[in-house]
Structure formats: C-alpha cells, structure tokens
C-alpha cells in the first residue's frame, strides 16, 4: 500500500460530497487498495446514516410567536430608550457630578465646623471657683472678649470667673488679685440676692433661646386666716446664644455671658 496515495485518496473521499465522483487517480487507487475501498464504503454508510436524519420543521405558530416577541421587544426598548438616552447624556452626567460635589461640600462643611468648635472648646478649659468675700464689690471687667455682666444691686458674693488662659484668681475687696492681673469676668451668686427676671423676648435668627415655658406660672397660696393669694410668676428666660458666634468658647460652666 502506497501511504501517500492512500492519504490523498482518503482525503479526497473525506472532503468530497456524498456520492460524488472521485478523480481518476483516486478511483484507480481505490480499485487496487482494499483498505481505501473499505474506508470509502464505511464513510459513505456513515454519511448516509447521518444524512438520514429528517429535517425538523418549525411549528405552525412560529411566525405569530416571533411577531409577538418582536413587538414585546420593541415596546421594551421604547420604554427603556428615554432612560438609557438620558443616563448616557452629558447633562445627566453633569447633574450627577454637581450633586456629588454638593454632597461632598456639605459633608466637608459640617466636618469643618465640628472640628472648629471642638478645637475652641478644648483650647479654653472652663474652671470656676467661688469665693465669698466679706465686702461685696462689683468686679469690673476690662477684658474685651468677656462681656460684662450686670452687677447685682446688693451683692454679697462675687464670683470670679476664669480668665481666658485658664488661670482663676481670688479677688479681694480692693480689687487686687494674687498674681495675674488680667481682667476677668465676674458673676453674682443669685442664691444670696434675687436675680432680675428677664422676660423672654422674640427669638432672632441664629439664636437659640434657653427659656422656660412661655405661659406664666400661677401659684395659689392660702394662709392661716384663709386668705387666698395668687402669685403669677412670669416666664424667665435664660437668654439665648448665637450659634454663629464662634469667638466665645462653648463651655460647661455657668460663667457665660448671656
């Protein structure tokens, strides 16, 4: 058996169509070569077997179903087209970018304010010491950063609030103090003397009022003789503070000027 001829003949058998006439050299070779003859017979039977599979037809409602499917697809694409077009358009991208930037700016501002407040609060720790002096004398404050507090008319006790640097000093009746001569704010102990009642005013913008209830408190008293008295206590306001004013530290002491 000539292997080259066999290979070429088999290749021709393999690539030819079913029942197609082979070339003369291949045909002659097949007549003489038993192996190639068997190969041709085997391949022909195999291909006949594979070709015997009957074609399958599409169902009768194929077109109808396809039309319905195309219609549904068209509707779906029409519904989604506006959204898709908007999503990939430049205005939408720009709007999204602006929104992201705005959100970032808001977060940054909030963070920045928080940090600033905490820095001020930690930079000026609040401490208060009380001193009861025999002679009541109003403390004068020359500190520009510490607003003065209205003095009590009959002060028996003078409270000396801390200095901004945190050094608290007792002040004697003459007004001298132990070391630091920095002007300091003073306060009055209202346990001894009554405080002025400050009526609650209208809250202004940017202010938070720390106030009592708006309605006056009415107290009925009856003495031994059976006389009734009604005392109306007007609402007392503890003032308000501007939120935007960051010059003064927010502290937990009661030494703030309201």
């Amino acid at each position: 058996m000539n292997s080259r001829e066999c290979r070429e003949t088999r290749q021709e058998i393999e690539e030819s169509k079913l029942h197609q006439r082979l070339s003369v050299p291949a045909f002659r070779h097949i007549e003489t070569c038993r192996a190639c003859q068997e190969f041709q017979l085997e391949r022909t039977r195999l291909r006949e077997l594979i070709g015997s599979l009957e074609p399958v037809a599409a169902p009768g409602d194929f077109d109808v179903r396809l039309r319905a499917r195309i219609a549904a697809d068209r509707q779906q694409s029409a519904r989604g087209s506006f959204f898709n077009r908007f999503v990939v358009s430049t205005p939408a991208i720009a709007a999204a970018a602006v929104m992201v930037m705005l959100a970032g700016a808001i977060v940054w501002l909030a963070q920045h304010q928080k940090n600033q407040q905490s820095t001020i609060a930690s930079g000026a720790p609040a401490r208060t010491e009380q001193a009861i002096t025999p002679s009541a004398k109003r403390a004068e404050s020359t500190d520009a950063t510490s607003p003065t507090v209205p003095a009590a008319t009959n002060p028996g006790v003078t409270l000396i609030a801390e200095a901004p640097r945190g050094r608290n000093l007792y002040r004697d009746s003459s007004g001298r103090s132990g070391g630091d001569r920095r002007p300091i704010a003073s306060a009055t102990d209202f346990n001894v003397t009554g405080a002025e009642s400050i009526r609650q005013g209208e809250q202004q913008a940017g202010e938070v009022s720390l106030s009592a209830p708006v309605k006056p408190l009415v107290v009925s008293l009856e003495d031994v003789s059976g006389t009734k008295r009604r005392i109306s206590l007007p609402p007392v306001s503890f003032g308000s503070q501007r939120l935007v004013d960051n010059r003064l530290p927010v502290s937990s002491t009661n030494s703030r000027s309201w």
Binding site: L53, P55, V56, A57, A58, F62, D63, L66
Partner: peptide
C-alpha cells in the same frame, strides 16, 4: 422580514435541533 423568516425558519430550527 416575514419573507426572510419563511425562508430560513425550518433550516434554522432543524439545525439548532440537531
């Protein structure tokens, strides 16, 4: 398009089925 479908529907269905 209907004509295209009618030309190829059986061939394609049969091919995919095989």
């Amino acid at each position: 398009f209907a004509e295209l479908v009618s030309r190829y529907r059986n061939q394609i269905t049969s091919y995919i089925y095989r």
